[in-house]
Every structure is written in structure tokens, then in C-alpha cells.
Nucleic acid binder design. Structure first.
Lengths: 233, 233
DNA sequence: ACCTGAACACCGTTCAAGT
DNA sequence: ACCTGAACACCGTTCAAGT
């Protein structure tokens, strides 16, 4: 009976012991609700009702935290998009999934972009690579076709995220676009003839459609290199 | 004679009065030599032998300073590349000029990327737009072709800048690439079959060639939409 | 009109001290 | 082993005071 008393009474200090997963989840919530700049160790530790040092016990630094958050989102997305679809459809599906994820979490674009070699981005690269290969592009061109698609995807996606950040400052997205379009429409006519011309289209274009059109353009270019005339295996 | 004495003796306070152009030039030097993170108002004011407040008199904030630096570089570059070249050649020339500028000033990529509506970026957009139009793409597809090219250009360029920043931390570029390639080569064979396969090519690829290959791929896709069979006007 | 530089309100990160 | 929170070394930006 006295022997049992020796046992330390554990698990009383805090309802849930802090875990990296829990920290990352809280970070994502702050990022989604209040934007990239709002994620500070002070805000995060306040929300988790702990000291900043506690967070640094589980997380190396801010970069590590952001990478983990990115990984978490990509992991949720990477599960489904069709592994056994026809290649072009598969590429479009993956591209749209990434686009939508970045649309929903505007901080994600900059993150994937800043570090394209992180595991989360690699998983996307792998899916695209397999589909490009299945498309039947010759060995020599494989690397370039793959990298063009990846670069375009990540580029546009991050670009849109940057726009979203700026649009957030102004009233909303459509007001922001209208503003830019208006500014463009009043540029010098001889120096900026083309930009003036597309200003209208900018006002009411659909980012998602535009993004997909670019993918299709690259796919059409890739089609140019493909030997097989018969689409069936 | 006494009237002349009333005149304040001017220009004695400092050899060169501070100007925005001078501040921007100093900022570019710091950015180029020591990287993006080294540009602080303290470092800048130390180099200009003045107080930080003096800089804020000429410059609204850090964003303004970076935008002005970007503008300065693009202005230097935008002068030459062939206005009366054949369209495809013109597009390649502009794209390469931008690529090389970003290669020479690694901070430039992130900057153009972060704010693609700034005048500097617009000037690039205009040149690309005119060439795409000259290519003879149908009215409806113009906007999408143009935006695909711009997005790709800015995307890859900024991507490369991000890589350069990371490579700077490690020994040098080729060592950095060798490291990444090595990491890729040891990934799980079933989960990352494709990435493992291209790891070799990553090690000794030429960024510039890869970039141009992507441009050509998009141009090939655009060619798919073009009616005119006769290349001569 | 333009410059000075201390001061303010923040950051990310560390670390002695606690449990 | 894990948590606390004051402290450190920075930031960008402001502003009373000078010339």
C-alpha cells in the first residue's frame, strides 16, 4: 500500500499534453482565419494557453512550423485524385486540387512555392510525373515537360495567393479586380496598348478557368511531342 | 553687398543631398551583395551615413523601396529586346532577359512575383502581349495565352530565385543540386518512382535551357490554336 | 525642406528556472 | 521530459527636435 504512493500522480498538469500535431492544427486555424502575418509565436502560445518556449520544444523554428502546416494540408488532398484516370484527366484533377487547396488557404501558395523540394510538394510532383510519362512523351523530353507543368502550377497558384492577399486589403476580390482593370484602362495608349485591351477581360475572368486553360495549353504543347496517334492503349 | 549676406549658404550640410534615386541604388547594392534579408533600414542608413528617418522622408515604406528597386532594374532591361523581331523570337528574347535579370539579382524574382501588377511587371506583360497577338491567335484565346506565358515566366523565375537563396546557404549551386538529387534518389521506390527517376537529370540540368523548353512548350500549344499556315506576313 | 537619432511597438528565439 | 515566461537581439516605423 505505501509502495503505490510512490507512483507520481501523472496527467494532472494539463488536460491535453501539447503535441506537434495540436500546435500545427492551431497554426492552420490562425493562418486561415487571420492571414499569414497573424501567425506569431505570441499569438500561437496565447491560443494554446502556454509559453512560447513550450512551442519551441516541439517545433524547430517558424519555417518548420509552416512546413508542417503545408504538409498537413497536402496530406489531406493527396489521398484521392485519380491514380487510374486517363493521364490528361489525372493531370487536370491534380492541378485543380492544388489550385483549390491554395484558394482555400491563401498562405499555402507562398509556402509550396518557397520550398518546392519539401515532401508535400514532392508528392504533387510525383503524381504529375507519372501522368506525363503515361502520356507517352519521349524519354528526352520527359524532364522538361514535367518541370514546365510543375512550375506553371506552383507559379500560378502562388500568384493567386499573392493577389488574394492584396485583395483582402481592399473591399473584396471583384472590387480589387475592377480597380486594377480600371487602372489598366487608363494607361498610356501607345505604351500600353495591349494591357489596355485586355483590361476588360481581367475584370470578369475566372481564375480557375484561366488556370486550367494554361494547363491545357501546356498539354497541347506536350501533345506535339507525342508519337502515338491512337489514344487507346 | 549686405543684401547678398542674407542669402543662406547652401549645399554645405552634406556633399550630396539625399535623393530617392540614390537610396534605391544603395538598396540594390545591399540586396545584390548580401541578399534580401540584409536590406534593413539600419544597414541602409549606415551605408548612406544618415538616420533612418532621412530615408523615410524620401520613401514611403519598405514595400515602396523594394518596388522602386525592381522598377530600376526592369527599366534597364526593358529598353532593348527586339520590338521588331519575329514574334516567337521576341517572346523568347523577353523571357530570357527577365530570366537573366532575376538570375543576376536573386531578390528580383520574389519581388516581381509578389506584386505582378506593379508598373515594372506591366511593361513585361505588354511586350509579351503584343507578340502573342502578332502570332495570330484568335481573339478569344488571347487573354489565356498571354496569361499562361506571363504566369509561367514569373513563376519559374521566382522559383529559381527561391532555389538560389537556399543554395546560398549550402556550399554552392551544384553542390546544392547534387544534395537534392541525392535525397531524391533515396526516396521510397514505390511511392516516389518518378521523382527517383528524374533525380539524375536534376543534378546536371541547365536552368536556363529548362526554362526556355517550357516557353517553347507553351508556344507549341499556342501554335495549335493558330490558323495561318503561312509564316510570312 | 530636409535630416537626426532616440523611442515605440513589435518580432523570433533562447534559457534559467520550475514541475 | 516538458513547460513557464522574462529576456535578448533584432525589426520597421514614428516623431520631437534640430538645421
Amino acid at each position: 500500500m505505501p509502495a503505490m504512493t510512490t507512483r507520481p500522480q501523472q496527467g494532472r498538469r494539463r488536460a491535453h499534453a501539447l503535441s506537434k500535431a495540436q500546435i500545427v492544427r492551431a497554426a492552420i486555424e490562425i493562418l486561415d482565419r487571420d492571414g499569414e502575418h497573424a501567425l506569431t509565436f505570441r499569438a500561437l502560445s496565447a491560443r494554446l494557453a502556454t509559453g512560447s518556449g513550450a512551442i519551441f520544444w516541439h517545433v524547430a523554428d517558424k519555417e518548420d512550423l509552416l512546413a508542417a502546416a503545408t504538409e498537413e494540408i497536402i496530406a489531406r488532398l493527396v489521398a484521392e485524385p485519380g491514380n487510374d484516370m486517363e493521364p490528361k484527366r489525372a493531370i487536370r484533377a491534380v492541378a485543380l486540387a492544388v489550385f483549390d487547396a491554395i484558394d482555400a488557404h491563401s498562405w499555402l501558395g507562398g509556402q509550396l512555392f518557397r520550398n518546392p523540394a519539401q515532401p508535400a510538394a514532392l508528392r504533387i510532383s510525383e503524381m504529375i510525373g507519372r501522368s506525363v510519362q503515361a502520356l507517352g512523351v519521349p524519354e528526352r523530353a520527359l524532364f522538361n515537360c514535367w518541370s514546365a507543368l510543375i512550375n506553371y502550377m506552383l507559379g500560378v497558384a502562388a500568384q493567386n495567393a499573392a493577389n488574394a492577399r492584396q485583395a483582402h486589403a481592399e473591399a473584396d476580390r471583384s472590387a480589387f479586380l475592377a480597380n486594377v482593370a480600371n487602372r489598366w484602362a487608363h494607361l498610356d495608349p501607345t505604351e500600353f496598348a495591349f494591357v489596355r485591351q485586355v483590361a476588360d477581360e481581367l475584370r470578369d475572368h475566372d481564375d480557375r478557368e484561366q488556370f486550367l486553360a494554361g494547363i491545357d495549353l501546356i498539354l497541347a504543347g506536350i501533345g506535339t511531342l507525342t508519337r502515338r496517334a491512337d489514344p487507346s492503349p
